[in-house]
């Protein structure tokens, strides 16, 4: 039985915004599933629907074997949800936040107490457990929020960007903990901007763009679909004629054989080509002849970044998101 099954799911908001336009996908029991997409693609909307917080406009959705509309209570018992914005009660201590969650899931006192202690240890909040969470740093709040979704041992975890705003160390801890949870059999449905981690951990993923699924499959399937190496060309920084230079370079490149795609990027130009390594000398020679100065050139096999770029025409940049969304939110960690 799939953990999540969605068919032709549509969400049109009251103001007419078509956030989700008929998507279908399936997440198997025990899977680590990545749900990616640029800003405004409809990821959070989908999560809110699957977690019974938002009514769908049409379509079918089953979570943990229950229809989200007919059996929402059964669904709620089996899922854990972390929303994109950190949500904790700042008047309560960290421990009280976790205990409240457990009580609302009808957990027994003794079991709950133990469970909360374990979780506090895992998210490294033992020392601050009895402090009012208003005084936590952004990163600590985020970790507390994650812990609060785990109190009742959910079968399926829905995580909307759980590591955004965490410092690299906490981020790594969270990812490795998620991996552990998954190995214990918990299904994980996650949206994130961190493609390297997705590549490492997700068994399958779907890419959403403008409310539609534009690609889905395993990371290796999606990467091999690109069928080409990536050659990154960098030009001198701060060149005022960068635009003209790029155009000239593209012109030169279009005369070379073996190139499947030429894409603009912030640093310069990205080329996709079969057997990219062999093309490098040709490129250097052609640029030399045309008087174009290159600052750097690199060949790599395709990454999920390329997959994302190919399907959405955009790049994901977690660093920028971190800075704009979460300035000053880096968790201070003791020890």
């Amino acid at each position: 039985m799939p953990a999540v099954q969605v068919e032709n799911l549509v969400k049109t908001y009251g103001d007419g915004t078509q956030a989700v336009k008929g998507i279908s996908f399936k997440v198997d029991d025990g899977e680590f599933f990545g749900f990616l997409g640029p800003n405004g693609a409809g990821k959070s909307t989908t999560i809110k629907i699957l977690t019974t917080l938002l009514r769908k406009t049409s379509g079918l959705a089953n979570v943990a074997g229950h229809d989200i509309e007919h059996d929402p209570q059964k669904v709620r018992k089996l899922i854990g949800v972390q929303m994109q914005d950190t949500v904790i009660d700042e008047d309560l201590t960290g421990r009280e936040n976790l205990i409240l969650q457990g009580h609302l899931h009808q957990m027994h006192r003794e079991e709950l107490k133990e469970r909360v202690n374990t979780l506090l240890k895992i998210v490294d909040l033992e020392d601050a457990a009895d402090k009012r969470s208003a005084y936590y740093s952004g990163g600590m709040k985020k970790r507390l929020d994650l812990a609060s979704t785990l109190v009742h041992r959910p079968k399926i975890l829905f995580l909307d960007e759980p590591t955004t705003g965490l410092d690299p160390q906490s981020r790594a801890t969270v990812w490795s903990y998620l991996k552990e949870l998954n190995q214990e059999g918990i299904t994980i449905f996650i949206t994130t901007q961190y493609l390297e981690e997705v590549d490492r951990l997700c068994r399958r993923l779907a890419i959403l763009d403008h409310g539609e699924i534009v690609a889905q499959g395993s990371p290796s399937e999606l990467k091999s679909e690109i069928g080409a190496d990536r050659i990154t060309l960098g030009f001198e920084n701060g060149n005022p004629e960068a635009g003209a230079l790029k155009n000239k370079a593209k012109q030169v490149l279009s005369n070379l054989g073996g190139i499947t795609e030429i894409v603009d990027s912030d640093e310069g130009i990205v080329i996709y080509a079969k057997n990219g390594g062999f093309l490098v000398p040709d490129i250097v020679r052609a640029f030399d002849g045309a008087g174009i100065k290159l600052a750097s050139i690199g060949v790599s096999s395709p990454t999920l970044d390329d997959v994302f770029l190919k399907h959405t025409g955009r790049r994901i940049r977690p660093e920028e998101i971190d800075k704009s969304r979460a300035s000053g939110m880096f968790g201070r960690r003791r020890r």
Partner: peptide, 13 residues
């Protein structure tokens, strides 16, 4: 506004 109501609504409370 804080989303706490949603968080509680996501439980079987």
């Amino acid at each position: 506004k804080s989303g706490f109501l949603a968080k509680i609504l996501a439980t079987p409370a």
